[in-house]
């Protein structure tokens, strides 16, 4: 399964809800305001880096870039993808659960 999170972890609990329900080996894509959870030097970023061994974590590059972050500011263990990569994740990982 692919889980998506599009909310800032500072505003809502969507990231936590996703991470506490996603099964080991599942993929998680952070996009829209969800991308802040992938950034270095933040508490959610540390959480995300910590679960990256059990979950495959991805972040949408165009949304990062729009918000003034580049790949070097993404925590270890998180892979940056573009919209084509988002499509590939949906193809490869099966049904999608959107944590809104």
């Amino acid at each position: 399964m692919l889980h998506t999170v599009n909310k800032s972890p500072f505003e809502r609990n969507a990231l936590d809800a996703c991470l506490t329900h996603a099964k080991k080996g599942s993929a998680v894509l952070l996009f829209e305001d969800g991308v802040y959870a992938a950034t270095k030097g933040t508490a959610p970023g540390n959480t995300v880096a910590g679960v990256a061994k059990d979950l495959k974590i991805f972040v949408l590059g165009p949304d990062l870039k729009a918000r003034g972050y580049d790949e070097s500011q993404v925590v270890a263990g998180v892979t940056v993808v573009d919209y084509g990569g988002f499509v590939d994740l949906v193809v490869e990982h099966g049904p999608v659960t959107a944590w809104l």
Binding site: N6, F31, E32, P62, D82, Y83, G84, F86, V87, D88, V91
Partner: peptide, 14 residues
């Protein structure tokens, strides 16, 4: 986001 996703899926031939 939906538009960009749809466009990317179509570009990949889906």
């Amino acid at each position: 986001s939906a538009y960009k996703f749809t466009e990317a899926a179509l570009a990949k031939g889906y």
